[in-house]
Structures are given as structure tokens and as C-alpha cells.
Design a protein around this nucleic acid. Sequence first.
DNA 1: TTCCATGTTCCGCA
DNA 2: TTGCGGAACATGGA
Length: 264
Amino acid sequence: MPELPDVETMRRYLEREALRSRIVRIDVLDRRELRGLPPAELAAEVEGKRFSSTARHGKWLFARMDQAPWLLMHFGMTGSITVTPADEPPPAHARVAFRLDEDRVLYFRDQRIFGRVGVVDDPDAFAANKHLGPDALDPTLTESSFAERLASRTGPLKGVLLDQRFVAGLGNIYADEVCHEARIGPLSRVEHLGPEQRRALFRAMRDVLCTAVRYEAVSSRFPESWLTRERRPDGVCPGCGDGIARSRFQGRYTYWCPSCQPTL
DNA sequence: TTCCATGTTCCGCA
DNA sequence: TTGCGGAACATGGA
């Protein structure tokens, strides 16, 4: 599930469950999750350390450890975290186990192993190095600075929204939802958007993401006006009842309502 | 058996 | 040079 709202929900979960916990030992159950970082190096960095704060940039989650670098996590398509009592068996697809004090374990789970666990000295420097754009919920990202960033872009809107260098945090599902709420066809070329549509996009992005975070990214709780639950070939627009369109874009499906969301 | 899946990265082709 | 599409990565459910 991991787009911005999912990762933010996990950040808050980590903060609730593991802040100030000490990492007694780390067990790397599948080293592929480390993307080449030797398990012994990760262990040397985190064992004995205590979680002191958390941060998030787009889909990247960071957990600060005292007197140490930051733990970094990316959840790929299927990653998640869960904290369980130490005497329970590991959950399915557990890849890395952080054994905490007070007999608890923080598991990094990831069925498809597209995620990543690592360490980084400074989240901001990491984001800059990756050329990530501002986090989509960053308060310093305003309607006007968003419009400015948009002005330097061309091509299909969907592609711009998915580009983490433009704004970090949107993925396939929420990019479609933002286009739907803004009433703009996702295949519209951004250079054809007017000022009012650019503002509408920014507001839709903020509203969609804040709402999803409020509902802890559980799609069954999302407003009935949302397109998300209609993501299937015979889905209908919750606004007008017309059939929704589906098209392949960059190897994945894009859904929209041709009646409510004209292509510009 | 085939297709599909909320992400990122790389390669080849305009 | 830039942008775009597609494939690869790996797994499992429908």
C-alpha cells in the first residue's frame, strides 16, 4: 500500500510503538532487502541504539537513533512494519527483525522485496542526493511554489504527478485520485493547464492526501465520492455515474472519468 | 496458465 | 539532450 498516506501512517505507528525503545539485536532474515549493505554493517550501526525520533520524505521513512545515523526504510509495493511480542512467531514475509527491549520485535515485512532497509547520515541530504522534490505535504510547498514547479514541466499530467523529483509522495492510486478531485484528465498535457486548474491540482493533492492520512490510508474508509474504489474495468464515476475509462500509462493502469475529467 | 498488483531503476529508441 | 515506453526486479492472488 505504500504511498505517502501509508508511509505517514506507518511513521506514526513506529512513533507510538517503538520510540525510545532500544534495539537489542537485529536479524536480517533476507539480505536482499538491504540492497547490498552487509548485514553486519547494519547491525554495527543499529544494535544497542535507541529510537529517538522519526521523519518522512515522500515515501521514505527515517527513524533517528541516538548517537547514530538514521535508519532508513522504503516499502516498495508490499512493505510494512509491525511490532509484536517476542514470543509470537514472525509474521509472513518478515525480512528484517529488530529485537527491542521489553521483549518486543519490530518486523520489516515485504512480500515482493522491492523495499529497502538501510542507514543514512542525514535525511535531507539523502533526499537531495536522490533529487526528490518537496514532500507533497511539506508546509513550505504553497499553491504558488507548486504552480512554479509545474510551469517548468511538460507532458502528461499523470507522469508529472508520479515523478518523485517533482513532488515526493504520490503513487499510482493517489495520482489518479488527485486528478479526479481536480476534475482534470490525467493524460492532459500540463503545459495546457490554466492557472485555475493548477490551483485546483494543488488543493486536490493536499485534500486527498490529508484525508487519506486522517483515515490511516484504509481505502474502505475513504469518502464515497472517491474514485479509488472504482478502479476496475466496469467501475462507474461516483460523481456522475458514467463509466470510467482505463488506459495503460507507463506500464500501469490509469483510471478516470471522461465526463468529469476532460483531457486538455 | 496468464494477468495483475499502491515502486524504482535502467535500457533502448525516437 | 530529453522524454517516453517498456522491462526488470520478486512474489503470490485472482
